[in-house]
Each structure stands twice: as structure tokens, then as C-alpha cells.
Simulated scan of single mutants.
Amino acid sequence: MIEALRTPDARFDDLPGYAFRPHYLTHDNGLRMHYLDEGKHGARTFLCLHGQPTWSYLYRRMIPVFTAAGHRVVAPDLFGFGKSDKPRDESAYTFDFHRDSLVALIRALNLRDVVLVVQDWGGLLGLTIPMKMPERFSGLLAMNTALGTGDVPLGEGFLAWREWNNKNPDMQIAKLMKRSCPHLSDAEAAAYEAPYPDADYKAGVRRFPNLVPDGMDAPGAALSRRARDFWMKDWTGKSFMAIGMTDPVLGPPAMRALRKIINGCPEPLELPEAGHFVQEWGERVAQEALARLG
């Protein structure tokens, strides 16, 4: 069994815009994963994957748009984030650990006709999954993300972020979100900090930048290269892309490179005012996605 922390439920009381019922899945390793499950079962499912340092709270603006259109939304919290269990040991967090947990969730819920919705680490992980179970996926919505193939140099923006992350083990997440998304209220920014009573709860948050594959033999790199081949040669679903244009790490250059490898991906929606956390401008993105994906 993996030793882990569990954030007290009281930390999540009365978060603005997040009146969703929690659901939990206990994995074979004994860890409990939290996920949202909203809308109509049996309908098209939007599987919404977050990145660092966020959690499913990031999707609160998009979920009501998808469900109002008659769709189902499943939005998990990765282990170490949100309401999911948080292993204490940073070495527990690996590329395969996170990816395998998402595959297990998809199978446990038997998700079908899935639109994969990804941003940041949601994409580094999530974009490697459809090739494993292509019959389950019918669409893609990609926002400010990439594949970690290990054969492309990491950008200066990311290297600066990784250095800052490593120097700030108790990063002030609310302040970070407020700087990135100035339109957030203080209460909304604080909601991103809610899962983490202190630095001990942030092992998973700290770990992610150091998991980005930075060489051909890095964990996850070969898998990501196979995924790149899948998106170029085998993907037949519909795709839509939205770009937060002010993101210095995974902004326009990274997204245009990603678009080139997604078979049939149309011109993206460019959001001049949006940064890395595109979902905070999510109502428009969700509406455009519905129109483009059909």
C-alpha cells in the first residue's frame, strides 16, 4: 500500500462555482481517486483532464455548457491533486503511475464515445491514451499542451518554470492562479489552494515539471513518440484546438507544432486575452467546441 494524505472534506465547502457531487474510485493500489460525473449517461462523454497545479475545479466553467447540450462530463483529479489521495513520497509519482490511473478510470467507468479534453499535463498524459483504446474515443479538444516525445528541445519558458518550481516547494498556488488569470475573484483563486493544507500535500504538484520527458530515453518519451505516430496516421475522429495566446510555456508555438501532428485538425480558436489556464475562459471554448465537433 502507498502511504498517502487525504485532504479534509471541509476544505472544499462552499467553493464558488463548484457545486458538483463527488464520486470516488478506489484503485488496485489502495488509493482513492476523485472524479466529477455530470450530465446524461449514455451520451457522448467529455473526459476533462487537468494539469499542474490545478484540479477539476478548473473545468467548472465548461461543465455546465457541455451538460446543457445533453452530454456527459467526467473530470477526474489526478493523484496528488484536488480531492484525490496524495502519496507522501514524491518518487511515487511517475509518468506511468498517472497514465495507468487514467486508463483504469476509463475502463472502470466503461467510457465510450469520448471526447478527450486536455490541457497542460492533461495532454502530456491524455494524448497517449487513445492509441491504447481507440474504439472508445471520437473527439479531441486540446488547449495549451504538448506531447513529451523527448526528441524536441524543451523551451526556455518551460525550463524557467521548472527551475522556479524546484526552488518553491510550497508554491503559493492561489497567487500563481491570480497572476495568470487576473479576472479570478480572490475566492476562486483560493479554491485552487483548497486541496493543500500545507506543503506536505503538494508532493504531486512539485513533481510534475521534473517528469516532462527531456530525452529520448526518459520515462514516457517512447510512449509519447508512438502516440505522435497515432495522431498523425491513425486518428480519424474530430478535433478542435483552443490557444491561450499569452502563455509563455505552452502557447502558440507549441500548439501550432501539436496541430501539425493531429490528423485533420482545423484552424484553432485563438484567445488573445487568455494565458496558460485556458479553461478560465472556458464558456466560449466549450461553446465553440460543441459547434465544431458536432
Rank of each mutant, 00 (worst) to 15 (best):
T7P: 10
A10Y: 14
H23D: 08
Y24N: 12
N29G: 10
R32N: 12
D37V: 09
E38R: 07
K40P: 14
G42Y: 03
A43M: 14
L47E: 01
L49G: 00
Q52L: 09
Q52P: 10
Y57W: 11
A69C: 11
G70W: 02
R72Y: 03
V73T: 09
D77R: 05
D85M: 01
K86P: 04
A92W: 05
Y93Q: 03
T94N: 09
R99F: 05
D100Q: 15
S101P: 05
I106R: 09
N110W: 13
N110A: 15
R112W: 08
D113K: 09
V115L: 06
V117A: 04
D120A: 09
L127C: 02
K132V: 10
E135A: 14
G139F: 06
L140R: 04
T145W: 00
A146D: 06
L147T: 04
T149Y: 02
V152S: 09
G155C: 05
N168R: 15
M171S: 11
M171Q: 06
A174E: 12
K175P: 12
P182G: 10
L184E: 12
L184W: 03
D186S: 13
A191E: 02
A199K: 15
D200G: 13
V205T: 13
R207G: 01
N210E: 12
V212W: 01
D214G: 08
M216V: 15
A218V: 00
G220F: 08
A221C: 10
S224I: 00
R225E: 02
W231F: 07
D234L: 13
W235Q: 04
T236S: 12
S239C: 05
A242W: 10
A242H: 06
I243A: 06
I243V: 15
P248L: 07
V249F: 08
V249C: 10
P253G: 03
M255C: 09
L258P: 00
R259C: 05
R259P: 01
N263M: 06
C265G: 08
L269S: 02
L271W: 00
F277R: 04
Q279R: 10
E280M: 13
R284N: 15
E288V: 12
A289D: 08
L293K: 11
